[in-house]
Nucleic acid binder design. Sequence first.
RNA 1: GCUGCUGUAGCUCAGAGGUAGAGCACUCCCUUGGUAAGGGAGAGGUCGAGAGUUCAAUUCUCUCCAGCAGCACCA
Length: 659
Amino acid sequence: MSQISLTFPDGNAREFPAGTTPAEVAEAISTSLGKKAISASVDGTHWDLQWPIESDARIEIHTMQDEAQALELIRHDFAHVMARAVQAIWPDTKVTIGPVTEKGWFYDFDRSEPFTPEDLGEIESKMKEIIEARDPVKTEVWDRDRAIAHYEETGEPYKIELIDRIPDDAPIRMYWHGDWQDLCRGPHLQHTGQLPADAFKLMGVSGAYWFGDTKRPMLQRIQGVAFKDRKALKAHLTFLEEAAKRDHRRLGREMDLFHMQEEAPGQVFWHPNGWTVYTQLQDYMRRKQRIGGYREINTPQVVDRKLWEASGHWDKYQHHMFVVEVDESRDGETDDASAKNKEQTRINALKPMNCPCHVQVFNQGLKSYRDLPLRLAEFGSCARFEPSGALHGIMRVRGFTQDDAHIFCTEDQIQDECARFIDFLASVYRDLGFPDFEIRFATRPEKRVGTEESWDYVEGALENAINAVGRDYVLEPGDGAFYGPKLDFYLTDAIGRVWQCGTFQVDPNLPERLDATYIDASGDKKRPFMLHRACLGSFERFIGILIEEHSGRFPFWLAPRQVVVASIVSEADDYVREVVAALEAAGVRAEADTRNEKINYKVREHSVGKVPVILAVGHREVEERTVTVRRLGEKQTSVSPLYEIVTSLHSEATPPDLR
RNA sequence: GCUGCUGUAGCUCAGAGGUAGAGCACUCCCUUGGUAAGGGAGAGGUCGAGAGUUCAAUUCUCUCCAGCAGCACCA
């Protein structure tokens, strides 16, 4: 028998017979390691203890101490144990796939009856039984025909389909957990008893398409989470509770920021509090863009289909547009006007984006190369008919306003404009509390327009620009728009979620379609490039992100109600009003609370309402012309002379760009 | 859009084939209280919309609308 050489992480190598398994290697090192081993890495591949190693390799034996590998195995084995439990309870259920996810796993099933939330408890109990049984895990490599024959016999059509997808040179691995069998690439633990029976939880049932194909019947997905131990599971469940507490839909209601209702699905009714945040943010962006070299414009929302046909949206994007038919024969008539006259019906669409309108502004009057780069910005109200299932609070809506701008420029200005934008964006994100962000660089997709030389040039310009501002990026080959490459900018929020907000896209296509031109230095007509860019994305979504980022405790300059001045005794009411007036004169958003309630009640209510500063005044403060200051989240109070607190809150209320 | 679930007072939720209840919020009264809910009284609902079954529907059935979770989508 031939020998192979296995190299350990410490650099030492040892000879073993070819076909040795990691289990045998671990055993050879020490009995205790043999017992503790759960899997191995062989040349960087996560390797089942039972798989033979046939050639020289680097090897590392994993135990439960290796968190990444342990969690992968635990979650993967849970997927199998759950599928086994499901088939034990409902034998006619067909299994499909059950991969590991970020915090657990899911398994998709085909079963005519829907799983109910009550079923989950039953499945969990069954899973615990299986774990207690400590059934051994066994694996074999089968040839294709045998595996297919097996699944024909057991009636698992999805598994046959999976086998068809396995490349010829890849092994077809069969796994057994006890007597329950599954096709699986592995690796797995050695017996079901290695699973932490108290560290998993089934999280819900939902629909999912087989391989994401909407044409195929929908499967039922059961999702679970699993961790190394009970403590980690509890920590995760606590995290979910925390995340639910900062849900912008809930805080939006509690803080009286906005509401939505079924007559206008996917559109926001902003209340005074929410609109204050919105306008603060918009005022901020307006100031930033003005000094950033942008000219602000505003364009129509209801536009004839002719423009959308010319831009290409009517062809490619019509299903996402709100189409508005207007019977123009009614022009000048009263409401009960004649029946619709088809010939005089004009078809419009609400703009789903601003770019075509911006080209119209550019196209007015002859443009010279001296006008470029021309940066046109608009807080553009757009409407998109998003699929109903996609709507989510104010994060994914049908009516929204973008902080949009289009830069018209020459080819050799692209690089500078890109670098300039990244700097601009960094400054905005810093001001808004997101000093770190990630850049993803999406390059030419398979289906695209334009020449290779043009793509080469433009992609090069973007790459140079990122390097010029000294930032890293993640390459996403093939993810660009059909007309050009793009940069997307991602923020990470306080609880680790990632949001794409900013974007920068190069577009030579739309100027072509809408016939935008400028006159160059030698007097010839030239086609400008168009750069689409946004920082926040949409105000609606960005405010949703801000709400969740801060759990509703906005930074002072953005807080809708910055200060509440509360009287302790009604004799202080006049003084309360005087304090409020002084604060308002200093540009601070202050409200009086002179209700017939105890100070405890007022403090509680405004704390729950996330007002950053409560100023309480009673006899003492009236006498001394002071206020007692209580900051949100602090139990301690301090006394401050009126003029001092007005000055300090005034400076605190100053937006970051004006400091 | 698809699968499943949900829709009862402003909010959170209970309830039943014979047209409804709690807590908080709201209004009024008492109370002037020093930092996270003082006490009392009162008002408030076409039970998401439409159709069907029934002597009777808010309750059962169907359709639609909206929301939630996930999938798909995200020029």
